[in-house]
């Protein structure tokens, strides 16, 4: 059975939602405490949302030094699928596993609303079961989701097909309407929207489950 490691920092608050979402697809979630320097035997890793270490200094700035992150970096370098959601995306950019940075939303509003996401590539561990151009309804819930990078990096991301999902209607000022990106190897993905909050029709949308299905498919294909 596919095992999904879910990292928990002090201040993480979306771990149970992610666990419920992957359990609903038949996978086994396993919580990983940030202080653990070794990962249990897992097939994929999710860095969930919240406020790791209180978001002090910058979101993700302190989390990058947690022992679990070194293990996750190694897991990702070996090709293991890693997904960072919201604060998890911020953590992955701070550790350097993903390019760019997330800064304060344009307009300085905390945004908590459904967002329409356009799938830009199916070549990533979060979108391999989807179709390019498919539009998903997945909620956002963030103050610092404004994707920022140098214009050279943006051109590189677009040329290498590393933009995974974009906003149909850009809510936060992100460059290139970017909602999520992947690394050059395509196994590490980060996105600001919360697929785990769109994991059941009762929540208003089940579109996020397709993303977790992709993650489990990537986990089945990876040999770490």
């Amino acid at each position: 059975m596919t095992k999904v490691g879910i990292v928990v920092f002090p201040g993480t608050n979306c771990e149970l939602d992610v666990a419920e979402a992957v359990r609903g697809l038949g996978a086994t979630p396993e919580m990983v405490w940030h202080g653990d320097g070794e990962l249990p035997a897992v097939d994929a890793v999710v860095v969930p949302g919240g406020f790791a270490h209180g978001d002090y200094l910058r979101p993700g700035a302190i989390a990058q030094f947690s022992p679990a992150m070194a293990a996750i970096k190694e897991f990702g370098a070996k090709g293991g699928p890693v997904v960072g959601i919201c604060n998890g995306f911020q953590v992955l950019t701070e550790t350097g596993m993903l390019p760019g940075a997330l800064q304060k939303n344009a307009g300085l509003k905390f945004l908590c609303q459904p967002a329409q996401l356009r799938v830009e590539t199916t070549n990533s561990s979060l979108t391999n079961t989807l179709e390019v151009g498919q539009v998903l309804s997945v909620p956002i819930n963030h103050f610092e989701g404004n994707y920022t990078c140098s214009t050279e990096t943006l051109a590189e991301l677009q040329a290498n097909d590393q933009v995974v999902v974009t906003y149909v209607d850009n809510p936060n000022g992100s460059m290139g309407d970017i909602a999520g990106v992947c690394n050059a190897e395509r196994n590490v993905v980060g996105l600001m929207p919360h697929p785990e909050r769109a994991s059941n029709a009762l929540l208003g949308s089940a579109d996020g489950q397709a993303m977790f299905s992709s993650l489990l498919a990537a986990a089945a294909g990876a040999s770490v």
Partner: peptide, 13 residues
Amino acid sequence: QLRPGISDPQGQT
């Protein structure tokens, strides 16, 4: 400081 050329939503506001 934010680097030159990086947009600053707080400064703009």
